[in-house]
Design a protein around this nucleic acid. Structure first.
Lengths: 197, 197
DNA sequence: CGAAAACTTGATTCCGTTCAACACATGTGG
DNA sequence: CCACATGTGTTGAACGGAATCAAGTTTTCG
């Protein structure tokens, strides 16, 4: 078990798991403000891996401190639990995405999710942002091969839904992309709901 | 938002999401002892659906009570949070399963998970149990079509890994099935770890 | 500048879907 | 108790989306 949790101050990180055969599935992408290995810190055995996607700055927080906060301060406890719940909600959507949508829809969905999350984090505009992942990493997030990611993105571009240069993405027609990706932002639980949990 | 959480006393239930095109993905299966819609109760908007798989008995618990327990009693709080974390861990494994494993491995994995969970819940033996799902429901859990579930199960049977009659499953060779399914029970976090969270 | 990483493209293969028919159970009402 | 309807499981044939294999090209960076 880790001795520290780490709070992401700058850059991107991701969590992933690997099959016995070497297939990798990225479970989630994290950005500024996320406490990235909270879950591994609290469960005795870590069941997944955390890795940096770009250069990052992190603040290490000793696990004992996290626990103290988590259990002695009701408000902190609420906030942390709430994070866990939102996390789980995003996992569910990703499972749906990978399990029940075609490559084109999956990719569109992920691009929409990024757009919203980056904007909320103050790291880009909804319709024009830098995607901090290689196509190989996208493939691991989408449960497909890098080759097919390439073709799929090209396809979306050919349809006029997006434009892209190297890593930047411009969403030409948000509504159309969201439709293709069957994207409904509910699952991100972005609206403040402090009164709830 | 729901007014009640419900504790499953007998029978099986599942959580699922549906795409705009009608594809359904089952996110998790629940059995005796699980509090099934805790997450929907605590987040303001529910992002998934809960449904009974068999006849069930449930105990309804008013959400206010859940919250009171959750935030006034540190030990209850720990336990509930712990449940949420294990839940999320299982979601992650399912995402990996659906995203990065072939049909045969997926099916084998699910059969192994069931075996263990049913035994822990006191509802069957690890090597011989009743599967409370139709092949169509299995398909929705595995992200494949019912037809292919049928063929895949038949395949596992032909290989001598399992036997089956209608709904019951007999695992002929646990080790082999676990190998095929790339099954490592860590993610279920079955060992008691009360000292941890 | 040169090497490695990332991206692009084409040809081929294959796993899983789709479509369609049928078999077998289960259950219900006459 | 049978007739019939419905849900579930089984099987076959054809199709298609994505994987695989393999070769380029472009970008990045030491």
């Amino acid at each position: 078990m880790q001795k520290h949790s780490c709070l992401l101050l700058r850059g991107f990180a991701y969590r992933h798991k690997v099959t016995g055969e070497g297939g990798r599935q990225i479970m989630s992408i994290h950005m500024k403000g996320d406490v990235v290995d909270l879950q591994n810190s609290l469960l005795r055995r870590s069941d997944h891996n955390v890795q940096a996607l770009t250069n990052i700055d992190v603040a290490y927080i000793p696990v004992e401190c996290v626990r103290e906060l988590a259990f002695d301060r009701p408000n902190v406890s609420k906030a942390m639990w709430y994070e866990t719940l939102v996390d789980a909600s995003i996992f569910r959507e990703w499972t749906l995405n990978v399990g029940r949508r075609h490559a084109r829809e999956r990719a569109a969905h992920l691009l929409c999710e990024f757009a919203l999350r980056l904007e909320v984090a103050g790291l880009g505009a909804q319709l024009h942002y830098e995607l901090p992942m290689t196509q190989e990493q996208l493939a691991d997030a989408l449960g497909m091969t890098p080759v097919h990611v390439n073709r799929t993105l090209k396809g979306l571009e050919a349809e006029g839904l997006i434009e892209r240069t190297r890593r930047s993405v411009i969403i030409g027609d948000w509504k159309a992309l969201a439709t293709v990706g069957d994207f409904d932002p509910n699952y991100l639980h972005l609206e403040p709901e402090l009164g709830t949990v």
